[in-house]
Amino acid sequence: MKGQLIDVAVAGIRQLTPRIREYVLAAVDGAPLPRPAPGAHVELHTVSPLSGPVVRHYSLVGGAGLEDDAPDRYRIAVQREDRQRGSAHIHDTFAVGTRLKVSRPRNNFPLDLRDSRSLLIAGGIGITPIYSMLRSLVRRKRPFELIYTGRAAEQMAYADDVARLAGASGRLHFSGETAARHLDIRELLLRQSDDTTVYVCGPAAMIDAVHAAAGDLGWQEGRVRSERFTAGPSPDDVPFEVELRRSGRTLGVGRDTSILDALTVAGIEALADCRRGECGLCPLPVLEGGERIDHRDSYLSEEERAAGDTLCICVSRLRGGTLVLDA
């Protein structure tokens, strides 16, 4: 299984906006890292003293302007969330030299190389995969249009670089401090040619709005591609305990940790592949606590969820208390 993690160290840090910091990660052995395709992300694995192991997904920026990063480097941009969460841990503790692990790149948001025309829509930190797509389109001299929205220029990472790279095909949209000036998505989609494919990454509400507008216009499904980290953290996540009845062990699962990661850290090998609730390899039988499961996978059926006797340990959580697993 593709569990292989790669050892990297922080090689550079740059404050991009008041809340967003860029980290350049370098392979510890200096060997070339797998080449990420535009839109790809990595899982970043680190350990927070507060909440234990932290796994976060970050899109790979790929380089600066038209330039690729050196083959042994990955570049990510991390936005500090408001609470004491994984991103805060990264901002507070990562310094040049900090060691961590990343997964091989995965891509749930690939840019179709065959597109005759692309519309890229980025909102806020959603610019990171869009930036790598932009670079690819410019390099291959493909026609595109890019809209990058945010409250104000100072809060938008890479705004200058993106505007320069996109040239006349790009536009920044400032929604203002209260986010009142909405982007007119319907109008934007209406003036696209029939062969345009749309790539959108940003806040969930924006992604939903683009899908909805495309649906209203009768667009064929698949013309709008989006990146959603369904497995991502939610503000209501709480720590809980997992009891493994057969092995007689009890583990704590922090707010930024999945059950799968807590098991792995404890040296218990569970089957898993996708780590995003899709492949169906990781579900374990539940003995107690099933009524408090917050299912976040897309694999289990409605009946299986309702029964509460199994869960995908890679993404699903408990709303507090103890979960007893038959493991």
């Binding site: 690939p110 995003r276 492949c279």
Partner: peptide, 25 residues
């Protein structure tokens, strides 16, 4: 599909999003 994206895995209840085959320009 012609871009290499997986559009169906018959033995699975959902379409996996990360199951692409590499496509060449």
């Amino acid at each position: 599909d012609p871009s290499g994206r997986c559009v169906n895995m018959p033995s699975m209840p959902i379409v996996p999003t990360n199951a692409n085959v590499r496509a060449f320009p």
